[in-house]
């Protein structure tokens, strides 16, 4: 996969913080014009992988190549990084911020001006170009946050939770922007906890668990492989269940979501579950049936890992 069109190639990457290994032989390739979603729980190794790609964390083994260059600070910036925080100068206007980050990316004055003109079209910034960043809404700030990282047309754009804390309209606008960048040929690494967003936007996703990229592929393919067209039954409770009730649901094959209010069951006989749940004396707030999504896959993988870990302990 690491041909000439690769925006990012990571081979057998391992990294340590002191004596603690945080990445275990990660292999990853993102093609030009592809959005790759990097999923994983907190502490799974997402930030470490991003830091290694940006050249901030030295690998203990393996290699990283971005747009053909190593990200060791010696080459032209092939990466644009959009941090999770609003990494802009609040007292400067949108235009001034973009000028600063364009110039810092190594663009000439003229190239920066042209890049800003292009960005205005892509992100529809024109109407508020002369507004100070600290006067903008969250959605607008997020938009500028992304634009500031793409002015130099990087081979790889890393988006770290780009839509966190914004409303639906702003989120949709940001999604349109990300899709336009893909069309322009930018390779995008989208780091997110928002599994719906990943499913909607990403050409491929990878799931990191404890520093290992345990699964990667197109969302549909992964879901098909994992669930083979089976349905998913979801029941929601208003309160966390008592231990006995939770045990009953587990015995029926349900898996609890992270918040322990939502229980999922993937299988062929999901329609029978309505009756089973009622029979067990449980009183859910809501029950529904759907096609499994990435969140189901994520839950299933986490469950597998827990079982694997407990078997290992045993």
């Amino acid at each position: 996969m690491a041909g000439g069109d690769a925006a990012l190639t990571v081979r057998n990457l391992s990294a340590h913080y002191g004596s603690r290994q945080v990445l275990h032989g990660v292999d990853l390739c993102i093609q030009v014009g592809e959005i790759f979603g990097l999923l994983g729980r907190n502490g799974a190794g997402k930030t470490s992988l991003v830091r290694a790609i940006c050249g901030r964390l030295a690998p203990s083994a393996g290699s990283i190549s971005v747009g053909g260059n190593r990200p060791d600070g010696a080459s032209v910036p092939s990466i644009g990084l959009v941090p999770q925080d609003i990494a802009l100068y609040p007292a400067l206007t949108i235009q001034e911020n973009l000028e600063v980050f364009g110039r810092l990316s190594g663009l000439s004055r003229k190239a920066t001006r042209l890049a800003i003109e292009e960005a205005i079209d892509v992100a529809h910034l024109g109407e508020r170009l002369n507004d100070r960043v600290d006067h903008l809404s969250g959605g607008w700030k997020r938009r500028v946050n992304i634009v500031a990282a793409m002015l130099h047309k990087p081979a790889l754009l890393i988006l770290d939770e780009p839509t966190v804390g914004v409303d639906v309209d702003a989120r949709n606008a940001l999604h349109r922007m990300i899709q336009m960048l893909r069309r322009d040929g930018t390779g995008i690494l989208l780091v997110t906890h928002d599994l719906q967003q990943a499913e909607l936007l990403c050409d491929r996703v990878g799931i990191l668990l404890n520093g290992r990229l345990v699964l990667q592929g197109a969302p549909k393919m992964l879901l098909e492989t994992a669930f083979s067209g089976r349905g998913e039954f979801i029941i929601e409770f208003a309160e966390i269940l008592l231990d006995g009730q939770a045990r009953t649901l587990r015995d029926m094959g349900f898996m609890a979501n992270e918040n322990r209010l939502s229980w999922h069951l993937v299988g062929d006989r999901t329609l029978d579950c309505f009756a089973d749940v009622k029979r067990a004396g449980l009183d859910p707030r809501e029950m529904h049936f759907r096609q499994p999504g990435l969140d189901s896959l994520f839950l299933w993988l986490s469950q597998q890992q827990c079982e694997y870990a407990s078997e290992g302990v045993a």
Partner: peptide, 18 residues
């Protein structure tokens, strides 16, 4: 450093010097 601006600049060659 706290707002992430230095993270953004870190990917630029000689970012901290600049």
């Amino acid at each position: 450093r706290n707002s992430g601006i230095l993270d953004r600049i870190a990917v630029v060659p000689r970012g901290p010097e600049i």
